[in-house]
Simulated scan of single mutants.
Amino acid sequence: MSFKRQLRWGIALLLVLGSLGYFWLKSSHDVIETIVCDDIVQGCAHGDLTVRAMTLPTTMRAFEVRISSPGAESVYASFDMVDMQMGMNRYRFQRQPDGGWRAMVTLPVCISGRSDWVMLIDIKHSSQALPTHYQLTLTTQ
């Protein structure tokens, strides 16, 4: 076997092993904590995290969501249906003077008429290398 051919096989093997290592490490850190939430307007808590919608969520109408997580460096959230991705709708929350986080969000309309939403929250703390992931299930009108 020629040197060039051995080099190609070596590079291909390194790429495959590198990709497998990356996905193994990524999946080992992607633990999603579930937040039980009966009424997001009243607010939901999980440890130091609280999530609250200021009005009842409805599709295609902006509503305010507030999140509190002491020590948070950044907060993002996206919305999908249960077992159905709903496209790109990732929201970056803005830090407020009181230390909380706020964003105006809009749920896309689901053509099937479903109202079972999953809010995926990513919170980065300065003390952590990777963000913490939370999942909260909510329903709309």
Rank of each mutant, 00 (worst) to 15 (best):
C44H: 09
L17K: 00
T50H: 02
M81T: 01
V31M: 02
L20V: 09
L14I: 14
D80T: 12
D39F: 05
K26Q: 14
P57T: 04
I32S: 09
S27L: 12
M86D: 06
S68C: 02
P70Y: 02
D80S: 10
S68V: 10
P108N: 03
L25Q: 14
P108W: 04
D83Q: 10
E33R: 12
I40T: 06
W101V: 10
G47M: 05
I111T: 15
Q85V: 10
W101I: 13
S69N: 11
D98G: 04
Q42H: 06
T50A: 00
R102T: 07
Q42T: 13
Q85P: 00
R90K: 14
I40M: 06
Q85K: 14
R90H: 04
F79L: 10
G100Y: 01
E64M: 11
V36W: 05
I35K: 03
Y76T: 13
Y22W: 15
G87W: 12
G100M: 07
I40L: 12
M86A: 12
G71K: 05
L15Y: 05
Q94F: 03
T34F: 06
S68K: 07
G99K: 01
R102G: 01
L13H: 11
S74D: 12
G100E: 09
M84I: 06
D30Y: 08
D83N: 12
T50N: 08
